[in-house]
């Protein structure tokens, strides 16, 4: 059963700028893996609740208390681009 994959859209959603050739290559590999993965659909799961998490835990909270923050210079020292106390990025949209 071939699986319908809009690989261009998927790559765009994932923000990975692949070439047409790369896209075709990944699409092919995803096909193979997804056909295997699609076997999960063969299993009758009516009435089965999904498990999002292996722990049957609820209500893990923290009190509303202020804790130590990071040193700004230490944080900004890792930035690929900065300006003064800010992280700098290219413009958000082109025309």
């Amino acid at each position: 059963m071939p699986i319908d994959i809009d690989i261009t859209k998927v790559a765009r959603l994932a923000r990975i700028g692949l070439t047409a050739e790369e896209l075709a290559h990944y699409e092919e590999q995803l096909q193979v893996i997804l056909e295997h993965a699609a076997r999960v659909q063969a299993l009758p799961t009516e009435g089965v609740a999904p498990t999002a998490h292996p722990l049957p835990m609820v209500n893990a909270f923290r009190p509303d208390e202020v804790e130590q923050t990071l040193d700004r210079e230490e944080v900004l020292s890792q930035a690929p681009d900065r300006e003064g106390p800010y992280f700098r990025v290219p413009p958000f949209l082109d025309e």
């Binding site: 300006e83 003064g84 106390p85 800010y86 992280f87 700098r88 990025v89 290219p90 413009p91 958000f92 949209l93 025309e95």
Partner: peptide
């Protein structure tokens, strides 16, 4: 946004 040269983030 449209004609910015970049953006600073806090």
């Amino acid at each position: 946004i449209h004609d910015a040269e970049g953006a600073l983030i806090d």
